[in-house]
Structure formats: structure tokens, C-alpha cells
Nucleic acid binder design. Structure first.
Lengths: 220, 220, 220, 220
DNA sequence: AATGAATGAGCGTTCATTCAT
DNA sequence: TATGAATGAACGCTCATTCAT
């Protein structure tokens, strides 16, 4: 067996493998996290490979063992944060039974995720404004559904939400979350839980299926 | 009179002046417009001086007759678009008497401005995510009021809107406009006028002063 | 006659011509003098055409009516200052009868010329260090004699000076003048007339023909 | 010991270290030496990064691994030559016992250093005329003493030299050395050792303490 | 796997010079 | 004669990426 040459036993080999794995994860994570912090402080353009290598404590060349190029770091960061957002939004919410409560729980939890991780908020904001976004959007267009739009689609199909395109709901819901988190982080006063609930209410009123209403919409 | 020396009449002088002015304006405008389109296609960082000079049909050095550096082009573009936004939002709206109608007219007109000028929308979005924003924000902080926050302040002072920080109203209102315009431009189906009105209604409901309500906010 | 068309009389034509001449001289002088001051403040490299045109109060293009290129301004400045140096050194000195007194008068007068015209001193110093020097030296090598080396040659031929190459005497004499002027201008304390005479004495002792001397030169 | 991991023995480690060191020194030296020769031929301004990289046989970017910018190359060159000058002047001279002999030996040795290294002479001459000089002069002003002025101060304190400002002695002594070396290099005929001694004698006579003299200084 | 010296295309910017007016 | 907008080659410098060790 190949591990015989270097290792006393299968267990020491395994231990080594695990150690290496963890080191690899450590190094990759270090690169990812350093990039995230650098983008928060210097933006996409100001985050150079040499800055990343310095902050991550690895040589510049080492970065290219883990990522084919600089864009790949950003893409991985983006995908990681997207997953975290998914967990943040639905981790607790899916335990609720009522659709409306699921929405409120999810909206608030995702909003708090950004409030507690400002560098992730800044990254996502910058990413959506950058050429990376359009590049990645094309790739994403091949993925027909994901958990976000499944949730909204479910709401529409079951009469909870107005029938409209997924993107629009997403814009309003996520736009609201991001605007709220931004204001909390950069504004003079932070929000209370109560404030967050009120804002979520506004959004919900906007996207929920309208009952036969005696409220007259203004049309000009 | 000074124009006598070189020109046959005041009118030929004026014609000359206008011609010169228009040529200057042509070249400067060409640089500005080329930059705008390039930013739409390649982002801030991807818009190089050599690309601008190529697209504008001028030598690279010529750009530096009209702008001290690359940042100055972007800043001028920003200020121009800000002014256009102001005109787009309030040009017609201020003719209305009722505050609520002013809001709807303004919201819709600004939304349409972005729908009809996608490159301006993309520029503003990128600008707000970039280091340029923070640079300019400091300068703007010295200007105590502008027409945008005057309008919202008026609404709060006169009981039309909930009392809150200017930045938050701006986030919700402009965030809504931008999200809507983006969806119209990049989404599969465009919006009708009716759709825009419905979205404006949602925003208005969010920011208007709440009447004593029997609607119970959900708090979790 | 051609002047009839524009001028009332020959005299008014002449007056115009003289005025134009003087304007031309004014403009050329303005360019020359501005260049001199700019070189004093910013060095050769830092003195740009646009700075000269600004300081001289003429358009950049106008400079090219008077000089074929930037180097020509510098060359003319050099030749002008060389002439002024000649006048400064020999203007009064040649009125003296005794060769030794001629030397002292000339040395002191040239030294004072630099002390009173620091920008000229700085120019000459920079010129001698620049590639212009080598360029011009080749042109000058065609001029076999000038007033400077004539004076030293005369001193050698008539037994006042040690017989040596002209360039060496020049180095020692002009090197002394420039070092002294520099010290006066940039040093903490200025020189008195008496100080200048003492330094001239040192130089004279160095270059004058040695009498039969009991002073033993050191040779190692 | 850390070298054990990669190298068979301390000697192979040392050999490796020396090899690496020497390679680094080779590349840095190549840049330095190429710059020196290019400045001799084209002046400061004419010595471009692309010329240096071409002559040194390295990529333009490589230069910036060894020097923060172009000025840093010139500053290092200046400091190196200053040190060489110090060694050239005092290396042998300090072995002499008599102050006067020390002066003659030092003067001649430094003069010969420049005669044998014309590119260093030209560099120093250009440096002293350039903005770099003033930049560095301010830094040097913080260093209260160096070996050059210590030597002259000693001479003044012990009655060998006239009491005067350090700068003046330096001007006369170094001005003489540089003028002599220049004449030797650019003049038609080179100097013999005897010639150098004679010139040194002239300088010495100028700066040495005057005995009670029946020689009358001329004052006009 | 890890390094970091080396690369060189490409960046933003400058500036002597030209030329239509 | 005088202008100054326009030019574009060339500058110093950056930085993502490569590769020998």
C-alpha cells in the first residue's frame, strides 16, 4: 500500500490525511476570508493578489493551487455566501408551519445575518454591481430553480403571493433586506427587533395576494 | 464691441460662438457618452482611457483637456445624472397640488427615466457601490439640503410620511425604483404603466403615515 | 508703397514697425526670462512648454514662432548668459592697465554677477551637467578662440600665468567663482567684498607664474 | 536547525544561501550598473525604466522587486558612490601620520577614483544639480557629522587649516578634484601624477592656515 | 505542496509639437 | 502673428499569473 512508504500504520496515514485536509481547508479558508475582509476595506479592484497572499499568510503562488485565478476566489466567495444566505433564511423558517410566518422568520433572519456579517453584505452589494454578476448570471440561468425561487413559487402557486416573476419578488424582498441592513450598519441608530418586524410587514403587504380590496390604487 | 474686430456682425459672432461652444460640447459629450456606454458594458475598472479615446474618436491626451483625470469624468457623469434624475422626478410632479400625487408622479417618472436610459441606471448602481461614492458622499454631507430630502422632509413635517431618517426613505423609494427598472430592463417581460402604479402603491403604503390601524403587525 | 494701405505716413509705419519689433523683443524676452525663472524653480526637466507659455503670457504655439523647439530656448539662454558673463568679467577689467589687476577686477565682477543673478548661476550649473552641454560642446569646438581663453593665453604668453591648457585655468578660475557664488547664495552668511578678494588671491596664487621658490611642492 | 530540512549539511545550506545571495546581488547590481552607464550617456531624464530593463537584461517589473521606484535606484547609487568616495579618499590617507600628507594622499586618491570611474563622476555631478540633491540634503542635514567634515574640522581645530565654514572648504577641495578629473577625462591631454600633485598644492595653499605673511592681498 | 522572483501587457497620465483658424 | 485644441508616443508603474526550485 502506498501509505506504507511514509507512514507507520493506516491510522497514522489517515491522521496525516486528515491533518493535511484540515491544513488545506485552513489555507483555503484563510485565502477566502482574507479576500472577504480586503474587499470590505478596499473594494474589488483594490484587492490584489499580493494583498491577499500577505493577509492570508501564504505565498502568491500558493493561491493558484487552490483557485485557477482571482475571479475563482470571488466566485467561490459568492457561492459560499449564497449558501449561507439560504441557510440563514430557511434554517429556522422552514420549521414554521404557516407560510406567512415562514416569510417573516426568514426575512428577519436573513436581515440579521447581514447585520451580523457586514463584510458579507458589502461583498454581495459589490458583486451585484460588478461585471462578475452578469458573467455569473448567464451560468446561473442554466440552473432552473433554487430554494429561493422555489419558496416564492410555492407562495404564488398556493395563493399566498401575487402572481409575478420570481426576479421581481426577489428584488423587493432582498432589496428591502439589504436596504434595512445597510441602514442599521451605516446609519446613526440601529434597529430594534420591533423595527425589523415593521419593515417586514411593509414588504409582506406589498407582495401578498391582494384580497378584494376597498383600497383604491392610484393610477396616473 | 469686441466682436467687431473679427466678425461682420453680432449675429455672425454669435453663430461663431455657438459653433465653437457646440464643438466643445460635442467633444466633451462624446467623451462623457462613450464613458457611460463603456461602463455599462465593462464596469468602472474595465473602462480604460484607451477604450474611451477609441470610442469617443479622440486621442487619449485630448481627454485630459476636458477632465483632470479619469475620476473627473466619472464624477461629472454622476453629477449630470443626479441632475437629470432630479428633473425627471420633479419636473412634472411639482405641478401637482396633492403631496400623494406628487409622489406617485415623481416615482413613476424617475422609474421611466431609468427604463428609458439603462446605461444611466447601471452607472448609478455601480457608482453607489464604488469608492467614488464614499469620496463624494463626504463632499455632499456639507450640502445640508437638496431637493430630494427637502421633498421627503416636507412630507414628514406635514404629516404625510412616517417620521424617520432621510436615508431610510431614500433607500426604500430609490431601491424600489431601481429594482423595478432593473426588472423591466433585464427581465423577460416589461412592465405596463399599470404595473408601475401598483408597485408605487406598495412603496407609498410603506412610507406614508400610518393611520390608527386595526391591522395587527406580526412580531416574532 | 505697401505701408500706404494701413498707415497714414512713413513715420507712422516706422513707428508701427518699431512697436512691432519691440513687441517681438518683448515676447521673446518674456519667453526667455520665464524659462530662466522656471528652471531656477523646477529644473530643466520640470520646466514644461505649458509652464513657460503660462508664465510668459503667450500661447504654447507662439513659442514655436520664436524658437524651433524647447532646446533652442535653452541654447539661446545659454548663449545669452555666456555673453553676459563675458561683459561682466571684462567690461570693467579691460580698462585696467596691469594684467594682475585685470584678473582681480574680472574675477570679482563675474562673481558678483552670479551673486546678483542667482537664476543665471543655477541655469549655468544645470546646463553644464546636462546632455545639452555635450551637445553644445561639439558645436563650440569649431569656435577656436574666444575672449576668455584669449585673456588667459595672453597671460601665459606674457609670463603672468603658468603655462598650461586653457581648460584647466578655466576650471580653476570659474570653479572658484561658482563655488564662491553658490556659498554666498545658499550658505548661512554672505561674503563681504574683502572675502571675495581673499578668495581671488588664493586662485591667483594658484595660477600665477611661480617665482623661483623655496617652497617645496609635495609629490607622493 | 532549520536548514536541516532541505539541505544535506550546513555547508550545502551555506552554499545555497551564498548562491541565492549572489544571484540577488547579481540582478540588483546589474540594474544599478546599467543605470549608472545610462545616466552617463543620457542623463537622469533620458534614463528610462525601459532602457534600464533592456540593458540590465531583466523585465521592467523586476526592477520594482529591488527598488520601490526609479528615484530609489538613483538614491542607492548616490549612497554607494558616496561610500566609495569615502573609502577612496581616506582608505590610504588615514595611514599617514602628518595631516598635510593625509590631505595630499586623499585629494589625489579621490581624484584618481573619478578619473578611473568617469561614469561615477558624471553621476555625482548630475546628482548635485538635480532635485534629488535637495531632497537628500534635508535628510543629510540631520546627520550632524560625517567623515569628510570631521577631517576638515580636525584640521581647523588643530591649526592646520584656516577657520571657515565646512561647506566652503568642501566646495574648494571637491570642486578642485572634480574640475581636475573632468579636464583629465574630457580634455585633450591627460594629467600625470606630477600634474595632480601641483594642483593639490594650489588647493592646499588656499585652505591652509596662513602664516604671518609679508605678501599683501590685493583689495579693489 | 509551497514558494516568491520574474514576467510583460497594459494601465493612467504627461508633454513637446502641430496645425486649422 | 498668434492661438490653444488636438495629438500620440512614451513615461513610470502595477499586478495577475507563471514556473523553477
Amino acid at each position: 500500500m502506498i501509505f506504507r512508504k511514509k507512514f507507520d500504520s493506516f491510522y497514522s496515514y489517515l491522521a496525516h490525511r486528515m491533518n493535511v485536509q484540515s491544513e488545506i481547508k485552513d489555507k483555503k479558508d484563510s485565502i477566502i476570508n482574507s479576500t472577504l475582509e480586503l474587499i470590505r476595506d478596499h473594494g474589488f479592484h483594490g484587492t490584489t493578489i499580493s494583498l491577499i497572499s500577505e493577509k492570508a499568510g501564504v505565498a502568491a503562488g500558493t493561491i493558484y493551487h487552490y483557485f485557477v485565478n482571482k475571479d475563482a476566489i470571488i466566485l467561490e466567495l459568492y457561492n459560499t455566501i449564497r449558501e449561507e444566505m439560504l441557510v440563514a433564511m430557511f434554517g429556522e423558517a422552514k420549521k414554521e408551519k404557516e407560510y406567512r410566518i415562514q416569510f417573516f422568520r426568514g426575512w428577519k433572519d436573513l436581515c440579521k445575518y447581514f447585520i451580523n456579517n457586514p463584510s458579507r453584505l458589502i461583498f454581495i452589494e459589490q458583486y451585484n454591481c460588478s461585471p462578475y454578476f452578469n458573467l455569473n448570471k448567464k451560468k446561473q440561468s442554466k440552473i432552473p430553480v433554487n430554494q429561493f425561487n422555489e419558496f416564492f413559487q410555492y407562495g404564488m402557486d398556493n395563493g399566498y403571493l401575487k402572481k409575478m416573476e420570481y426576479n421581481l419578488v426577489a428584488s423587493v424582498v432582498f432589496g428591502g433586506i439589504i436596504a434595512t441592513a445597510k441602514y442599521h450598519i451605516f446609519g446613526k441608530f440601529g434597529y430594534t427587533d420591533n423595527d425589523l418586524c415593521k419593515i417586514a410587514n411593509i414588504i409582506w403587504d406589498g407582495i401578498k395576494r391582494q384580497e378584494i380590496s376597498n383600497k383604491v390604487s392610484i393610477i396616473i
